[in-house]
């Protein structure tokens, strides 16, 4: 992207008029190497946010949560768990609603399954090559 465009985007950025996409473009630009000296400090700002995005909780957290939610024996019952699965499915589909769905290549599950099978075999064969190069 050209410098003039970036200058314009930056101006919009400080005025809080940029879209999320434009902000991504800015971030992308400042990730590059040919940032002029006068914008050096802006580069630091954007790369700071990028770093922040990499912050993750400690490894034990997930386990601790799973420990608590793991079902207790007394709750075990087909009816209850079936209900929970349905509710979960509902919750998830609501949660996912605003994300664009993957467009299916096949309408027929049988065909799709055949494609999956093929893909798995190709991947497997290539993995095999890496694991046993002499064969």
């Amino acid at each position: 992207m050209e410098r003039g465009q970036i200058a314009q985007l930056l101006e919009k950025y400080w005025q809080v008029e940029t879209t999320v996409e434009e902000e991504k473009m800015l971030e992308e630009y400042f990730r590059g190497t040919d940032v002029p000296l006068e914008w050096e400090s802006y580069r630091d700002i954007f790369s700071f946010y990028e770093r922040e995005r990499g912050v993750k909780p400690g490894e034990g957290l997930e386990e601790r949560i799973m420990e608590v939610v793991r079902p207790r024996p007394r709750l075990r019952g087909a009816w209850w768990s079936a209900a929970a699965v349905i509710v979960l499915g509902l919750g998830l589909s609501l949660y996912q609603r605003d994300k664009p769905a993957m467009k299916d290549t096949y309408d027929d599950p049988q065909q799709a399954l055949a494609a999956v099978q093929k893909a798995l075999l190709i991947a497997s064969r290539n993995m095999h090559k890496g694991l046993h190069p002499l064969k």
């Binding site: 997930e62 799973m66 793991r70 768990s81 979960l88 499915g89 998830l92 949660y95």
Partner: peptide, 18 residues
């Protein structure tokens, strides 16, 4: 299944979508 779904939620779930 339930645990897998919850696990997915925990790790960002997004694997369900795009």
């Amino acid at each position: 299944k339930l645990l897998v779904v919850l696990g997915l939620l925990l790790v960002g779930a997004v694997s369900y979508a795009q």
